[in-house]
Design a protein around this nucleic acid. Sequence first.
DNA 1: CGCGAGTTTGAAATTCTTCAAGATCGGTGG
DNA 2: CCACCGATCTTGAAGAATTTCAAACTCGCG
Lengths: 251, 251
Amino acid sequence: MLRPKPVPVTVADIRKNCSQCHLLELCLPFGMTETEINRLEQLIESRRRVLRNKPLYRCGDPFEAIYAIRTGSFKTDVLLEDGRQQVTGFHMAGEILGLDGIGTERHTCNAIAMEDSEVCVIEYRQLETLAREVEGLQHQFHKVMSREIVRDHGVMMLLGSMRAEERLAAFLLNLSHRLSIRGFSSAEFHLRMTRNEIGSYLGLKLETVSRAFSRLQEEGLILVQQKHVKILDLASLQKLVHPLTRHQSGE
Amino acid sequence: MLRPKPVPVTVADIRKNCSQCHLLELCLPFGMTETEINRLEQLIESRRRVLRNKPLYRCGDPFEAIYAIRTGSFKTDVLLEDGRQQVTGFHMAGEILGLDGIGTERHTCNAIAMEDSEVCVIEYRQLETLAREVEGLQHQFHKVMSREIVRDHGVMMLLGSMRAEERLAAFLLNLSHRLSIRGFSSAEFHLRMTRNEIGSYLGLKLETVSRAFSRLQEEGLILVQQKHVKILDLASLQKLVHPLTRHQSGE
DNA sequence: CGCGAGTTTGAAATTCTTCAAGATCGGTGG
DNA sequence: CCACCGATCTTGAAGAATTTCAAACTCGCG
């Protein structure tokens, strides 16, 4: 098993972690003051590389830390006893992994790297201690967890009340948005995940995903070639997801 | 609009809130020490009654507090612009509502009482302040949020990779378990929600829910009469949800 | 150049939804 | 007390969407 190369992180590197990280406003420190960030940096003891298809953690592992993605991307999934798999999320740089473990002190899902990746390890005990002293950190941490809950509600909406084509459109729009926030093109990108993984996330079989891709292409909304996607008609894609903008239904 | 009766809560009542509440070990204070709980009690300023079918909060409302359910039950839902509804959860005594609002400072779903209910109002700013001083509170609060995330993953699993009958079985088992924790019968109970609401939660149409009920009954697993449910064969129900208990699939 | 993993596409089978008609329940008013 | 009403639930049959099964295609890589 080949290692990519020796980890080139010096102590100096680690110390100036967050303040110089270009992910600052996407990650945990967002909204914190300079001095608050400096304190957060001090508790990030280490980074960890995770090779493609290797787990950052696995379901059942004791929970000790949360992880901020520095580079690369991950999927999280839950396995049913009979082998059925549900992908619960695709995660990219700046996002926080591992929050599922706090409640039971064990991880409740698997986090697998979709490409060679690197994460900042934030030891959880220390994070709690620091959050008691640093108000901004506490607040941001709570926001991160809350947004995760809201994100999950969005996925439920998607799984519970959209049809295949709508689900895929919503998925692509979401990816596009998150990529553009990170400075990548929002109109053209490479999918890191297989049709099967997309299907698992969207509650569809891989063939259905493939057909939905084809249909969106026939309709002229996107251009697909295997894992390469180009968004041609953003407005129509969005209309697919939010069919009509009527007022909220009364009570 | 008739009020149920004047709220009979005195200041004395409020002060001895949590320590004497029979929901103690199901609610936020679980795991906190006596003294820690006393401090938590002091920040619970008020209770609030919510009549059946009335909202505790609505999507878009400014976020100011989280709520611990004292009595009754709620559903939370998200509405799509075109009127489609997704029920994101059914909540009972001891559970915490409103966590969705922290991230955006506005609520992102509706919380509607399914029966006349009462909640403890926990002002969020104050909770954060206290959590910085009281380690046990901080820790419990994080656990509550984390468990909410894990719960949501369970729902995704359900929506994404189970068939109608399995979804309903999982739903009934979950209800049964939560009722038994609260001292109610786990084998026989009354559903507070309509077929339509169950369907929205499970990603099914109400007719499909009804048929799934009938099929489970034909198979001798349950007895249904409208909203009254009796579980006859717990083991088989569980087998439906977890078809075979094999080892975790390797990597 | 061929292999394997991943993808696409077609056709049949299955599951779920839609449409439609009755049945049941709780509450209301005669 | 009972008939009736609206809301909810059940059931059937037809239709639509998704899945399953099967085969062929593409692409990167050794």
